[in-house]
Simulated scan of single mutants.
Amino acid sequence: MTASNQPIIQEVETWLQQVVIGLNLCPFAKHPWQNQQVHIAISHASNDENLLQDLATEITELLALPSKQRDTTILVVANYLKTFDDYNQFLAWTDALIAQQGWQGEVQIASFHPDYQFANTLPDDAENLTNRAPYPLLHILREASLEKALQHYPHDPETIFENNIHAVQNLSEEQKVKLFPYLFH
């Protein structure tokens, strides 16, 4: 890790701790974070091909390690896919890569972007905050870990998204500025 990556990693770690874990947007994130099983990698790719190579490398490294050592990887896209439309289109390439490499059933990608917008929402709708991060992120999840976590989840998993919307809708403007400073510069 180079020193120039440290501010990026720190910003993503702060987002994870304060937003994802702090607001309990992902009820499965706290345990791997506390056990230091979350790997944050930085991609400085400037085109689809190089970013796909970085993603393939990170997936390969994740699958080569036991989940107790590395349960999940967050690939931060530092300088590319700045618009949500470009990012959203790139997600089709991630699906194609997973299919091509035979990784279906092993990994899936959770998507986050500073301008994330769910279908049929307006840009300023609160629910979009649930997937807004300081950078475009490709969160590589192990399917087996996700299935295991869901088995121990005491509620209907469908309630997670509803609870997340409720959590961000109830944030004051001051809390939004504190938790999502990258949206207010």
Score class of each variant (00 low, 15 high):
H44V: 07
F28H: 05
P114H: 13
H155K: 15
E174V: 15
F161N: 11
K176M: 10
D95L: 06
P32A: 12
R70I: 00
W33L: 08
L65G: 00
L52D: 04
P32L: 06
E58K: 05
D124M: 11
Q117M: 14
E143N: 14
I59C: 07
F161I: 05
N88D: 07
A41Q: 13
L97K: 09
L122P: 02
N163S: 15
P134K: 03
D124W: 09
Q69M: 12
T2S: 07
L137A: 09
A133M: 03
N164T: 04
N128E: 02
E162G: 10
L138K: 02
Q117Y: 10
H185R: 07
E13N: 09
E106K: 15
P32R: 07
L55W: 00
A56K: 00
L146D: 03
H31P: 07
V20P: 00
K30V: 07
Q6P: 03
L137H: 06
V20A: 08
D54S: 12
T73W: 11
K82Y: 10
Q17C: 10
L171D: 08
A96S: 00
T130V: 08
P66A: 10
S46H: 07
Q117W: 11
Q6M: 13
W93M: 12
Q89V: 05
V77C: 15
Y153I: 11
H139M: 02
E11R: 01
E158W: 06
D95K: 07
E158P: 01
A149D: 02
E147L: 10
Q108R: 09
N47C: 14
Q89E: 10
N24I: 08
V107S: 01
T72W: 03
E61L: 15
P134H: 09
L179W: 14
E174S: 14
V177N: 00
S4W: 13
W93A: 15
E11C: 12
F184E: 06
P32N: 11
S172P: 01
P157E: 03
G102Q: 12
N88E: 14
Q104F: 04
F90W: 13
S43M: 12
V107W: 01
A3L: 03
H31C: 04
P32Q: 14
Q108Y: 02
Q175G: 11
S111L: 06
N79M: 03
E147Q: 11
L62H: 13
H152I: 09
Q104G: 04
G102F: 07
S46G: 08
P157C: 07
I21C: 01
P27W: 11
I8T: 15
T130L: 09
P154Q: 04
I59Q: 02
N50T: 15
N163W: 02
T94Y: 08
Q69F: 09
W93V: 01
A99C: 10
N163Q: 15
